[in-house]
Design a protein around this nucleic acid. Structure first.
Lengths: 121, 121
DNA sequence: TGACGATATAGCGATCTAGCGATATAATGT
DNA sequence: ACATTATATCGCTAGATCGCTATATCGTCA
């Protein structure tokens, strides 16, 4: 019985590798940056992103670096600009998921999850 | 021009509300717990989960509480057991996404995202 | 080369998170 | 009531993350 307790589950190594990517991506401003880049459809520079989202240059650059380190974004030089674009399509699924999440959570009032979590205690 | 820079994007309030849920869910053991509960198909108690995943009782209980606080899981009493089940279906999408992610990243070698991130520097 | 615009990094204090051991609470059966 | 099993919480230390300011680097043009 001990051999099959975890068969069929995603192995721990994979989770330990992927979890940080998701965790670091799940940040309000960083998600917004990704959403912005998606809507724009083409690479944007740091200044554009910062101005559009109202975030400071330094902060914007830091977030971009984090996302780049995770392989979510990539940046290429264009003159004195740095153009960033989305390189990991799976984060777009995450955004789609958030859109649904949003509708379910805020429009429909308390969700099955929330009410269940309360009554369960 | 200032009015339409962020139209069509997920609003910041939504992101600030959803991001913590994703961030706290994106934890190796917690993802594994969710994956385990999904595979089992029916609610499981703390001891079962801990034994199956090889995690300490205290740690397991803590993770379950975090997931319950986020509305991802719910627990109901059954005698002296506490049976947990998944209440937020969207986390299953996250797991599916990880499975794809896993295949793309580990099987195909360096991914487009990773190579692009390196050449971009 | 020197000034300037654009981007990246360093350093800091504050806050959050991870695990762990010890202990407290809850439910059951005797 | 008491012992037992199951679950939850507490207290702690170490490490991660956040947002900010100041400063450094890079690329362009005169």
């Amino acid at each position: 019985m001990s051999a099959s307790t975890t068969t069929g589950l995603i192995d721990m190594e994979t989770l330990e590798r992927v979890a940080p990517v998701i965790r670091l991506t799940a940040h309000p401003l960083r998600l917004r940056i990704i959403d912005y880049l998606r809507r724009e459809g083409e690479p944007r520079c740091v200044t554009d992103i910062g101005e559009a989202l109202g975030s400071d240059q330094s902060v914007t650059s830091q977030q971009l670096r984090i996302l780049r380190d995770q392989g979510v974004l990539a940046g290429r030089r264009a003159g004195c600009h740095m153009l960033y674009n989305i390189t990991d399509p799976s984060v777009l699924l995450l955004l789609d998921c958030i859109r649904e999440h949003h509708c379910r959570r805020s429009s429909d009032g308390p969700t099955a999850a929330q009410s269940a979590a309360q009554t369960a205690h």
